[in-house]
Simulated assay, not measured.
Amino acid sequence: MPTIFILFGFRFMFYANDHEPIHVHVIKGDVSAKFTLFPVTLIKNNGLKSSELKLVESVIEENQEVIAEHWNKFFNKSK
């Protein structure tokens, strides 16, 4: 489970067997969410509060390219 970064206690990561489209999983304790990257869209929410969703969505928007670079490097994809 490659971790991209941890911020505000949230782990931004993807799974080694993940699939396209590029997306990111966000985990904190026993709650999680999943967002697509282009565009940043919530796909699944498993317990995050609306304020937490807004925060992590903002972090993802600000770091779209960083997340995409990690994804592409891990899965050996060219941009």
Results as ranks from 00 to 15, higher is better:
Phe5Asn: 05
Ala33Phe: 01
Pro21Ser: 05
Met13Pro: 10
Lys54Pro: 07
Ser51Pro: 15
Ser58Pro: 14
Val26Ala: 13
Val26Lys: 05
Thr36Ile: 05
His23Gly: 03
Gly9Trp: 06
Ile6Ser: 07
Asn45Val: 06
Lys49Ser: 15
Leu42Asp: 01
Lys44Gln: 03
Gly9Gln: 07
Glu20Met: 13
Leu7Lys: 03
Gly9His: 06
Glu52His: 13
Val56Ala: 03
His25Ala: 13
Asp30Met: 03
Leu42Met: 03
Pro39Gly: 03
Glu57Phe: 13
Phe12Cys: 10
Lys49Val: 13
Lys49Ile: 13
Glu57Lys: 11
Val24Ser: 14
Val40Leu: 01
His19Ile: 14
Met13Ala: 15
Asp30Gln: 05
Ile22Thr: 14
Ala33Glu: 00
Phe38Asp: 12
Leu7Asp: 08
Phe35Ile: 04
Ile6Thr: 03
Lys28Pro: 08
Arg11His: 05
Gly9Asp: 04
Val56Ser: 07
Val26Met: 10
Met13Gln: 14
Gly47His: 00
Leu55Ala: 13
Pro21Trp: 08
Phe8Ala: 08
His23Cys: 03
Thr3Leu: 07
Thr36Arg: 06
Lys44Arg: 06
Ile27Ser: 06
Phe12Ala: 10
Ser32Thr: 01
Asn46Ile: 01
Ile4Lys: 10
Leu7Arg: 04
Pro39Ala: 02
Met13Glu: 15
Leu55Asp: 15
Val26Asp: 07
Ala16Ile: 04
Ile43Thr: 13
His23Tyr: 05
Ser32Val: 02
Val31Asn: 08
Asn17Met: 06
His19Gln: 15
Ile22Gln: 12
Ser58Ala: 11
Gly47Ser: 00
Ile4Met: 09
Asp18Cys: 11
Leu7Glu: 01
Asp18Ser: 11
Arg11Ala: 02
Pro39Trp: 02
Phe12Ser: 08
Lys28Glu: 09
Phe5Ile: 09
Ile6Phe: 08
Leu48Val: 11
Met13Gly: 15
Phe38Gln: 14
His25Gln: 15
Asn46Phe: 00
Lys34His: 11
Phe38Ile: 15
Phe12His: 10
Val31Thr: 02
Asp18Lys: 10
Leu55Gly: 15
Lys49Glu: 12
Asp18Arg: 13
Leu42Lys: 00
Leu7Thr: 01
Asp18His: 09
Pro2His: 13
Thr36Ala: 05
Glu57Trp: 11
Met13Asp: 14
Ile6Tyr: 07
Phe5Tyr: 09
Thr41Ile: 14
Phe5Trp: 10
Leu37Ile: 12
Thr3Phe: 07
